[in-house]
Design a protein around this nucleic acid. Sequence first.
DNA 1: GTTTCGGTTCTTTTT
DNA 2: GAACCGAAAC
Length: 662
Amino acid sequence: MRGLHRIDFEKELNEQQLAAVRAGDGPLLVLAAAGTGKTRTLVYRVAWLVLECGVPQEQILLATFTNKAAREMLERAAALVGGNVGGVWAGTFHHIANRLLRRNARLIGLPNDFTILDRDDSVRLVKQARKERRLDDVTPQPHVLLGWFGLAANRCQPLENVILSADPDKTADPEGIIAIHHDYVKQKQTLNALDFDDLLAQGVRLLSEAEDIRLRYQRQFRYVLVDEYQDTNPVQCRLIDLLSGPAGNVMAVGDDFQCIYSWRGADVRHIMSFPERYPGATVLKLEINYRSVPEVLDVANACIKCNSNQFSKQLRSTRENYRKPRVCVCADGWEQAELLIEHVHRLRRDGYCLRDMAVLYRAHFHTIELERSLTTARLPYVVLSGVRFYEQAHTKDSVALLRMLVSATDRLAFCRVLELLPRVGEKTALKIWQRLGDSFVAADPAQRAKLKSLLPVGARAHWSDIDAAIERHLNADGTLDGGALLQEVVRDFYEAHLVRTYDNSRERLNDVTAMIDDFARFESIDSFLNDVALMSNIDGEDSGSGGGDSIKLCTVHQAKGLEWPAVMMIWLSEGMFPSQRSLNETSDFEDSDAEERRLFYVSVTRAKDDLAMFVPLSRKKHDGGVIPYTPSRFVSEIPRRLVNHTASPAAAYAVPGARMRW
DNA sequence: GTTTCGGTTCTTTTT
DNA sequence: GAACCGAAAC
């Protein structure tokens, strides 16, 4: 079959999809409403280019937002083509930028063996700078500052502007913040490190400044495909522009209704202005929805109509009528959990499995009551985790050990490893690092001996265990078998540390072991470290839960691109969804209101058959007080006739002051 | 001066 | 659960 693989494009695609897949050269904007086969169109486009047009794979660039999306599309394309599509450059924007920089960073004065800082590393550096300048009390928290730094980088704006718009009352000290930012940038330089935003920014700088490189890649990438174009920020947009070059063979696929990343610098205007920025662009719309029953789409259409400034699109269902979405008003989070569990049982009687169901929410902490109730009810569930696999302490510890061995300048990794030892904290670790001359070559026995002599007495025995493993596996030329080394360090030292420190040490140990197994698949430590830094979620194939039948719990952001037969939305109360913080913190109220509404729209359109919306009217505070809530504006906006409405008896009594809008 | 420990508080969204 | 703070212990 291989090579002679035939695809009947005309039979397998609808008219609109076919037009997009077979489009000729030149810029193309595909406005793909939810559930209209956006991924299918992209995948078939790749197949079309490879099979029908004979385009060599390395001339195709496919930019996505998540690793998962990239992997999934490649898998589907491979199945379609009946062969390997590994030659296609597919990955997240960060991956692509990283790939460009690893090969060419020297041309713009950067080392090409930089390490990538994750969020946690960045927070540490900012915290340190803030402390050293004694600005702890007068500046916002490190993660807030980093958010502003990131926004400035992603929007290509001066930091001053971002501070001003994020903090209009000028409660923060702009000069102090800029000084901290300065220190942070400096630190990254000495550490030989780039953070996530730098990857994109430096990628753009590389292509702007090194003309021959730019031309080379522009010649190479004759076809540039971008997924989720509505969520690109200015830097990502620029990266695509630079890679595609004057030919402008960009196929941008997206849906302005689903732009939900403005807090990361995304701007709906990029997709809105695509036709102007790429003169002569073809615009195609996909409006035939294969996913949801008409009743669900009615709610979705009604919701999004309340936003202005968008490409008009009306979702049309291909499915039979089924039943109206349900709105369930309840007293508080506990009753919400109770009613949700009742609903789950109803769904099971209708023949749905637990894996057909998902609970969506605006923020992770919204699940507290639900998780407890599900456990009590013995209903298995999986949280599409908030704490990402490679950001948990134990995986980071293991990664730090490898980083320390591979890079002599990686202070963060060095200190992290030393701080695992008893009697070594932040100060001691840093002091030792400085005494070693601001670098540590693990392959040098003399340096390791010196390190040992600098340690507090209580830490030396533990270090010896690690040192012995290094001795056995690290060659004088710096090469090492990372997997074997890690395994021994875990056995001789780290396992005991886990038991001492955590009460769920077993699970953490399993994670570490799994990581070591995974490690074997990489050709070098460098390539492993690279991937780890850019791989946030275990966005693997539901690894743990794959076999089991369980309900999915995840944030709306994580649900993007996914679908389930039955979707339940919780905490649809003003202040929770829409999130009060988001409404407060964005300077332009209308923008944040619109974005929250798009989030609501995304949630609704995840449902294939059944949709249930839960509206708690109160929430208990930590100090025992009760906060009254009103129903979310997004629920109130839905015409009454489109939903089945129930209110629990308790809801009426819950908060005497709270009035229903119906 | 540093580390550790225990109690308290509060959770946006992610590469 | 983890990040922060203050106080005790090294």
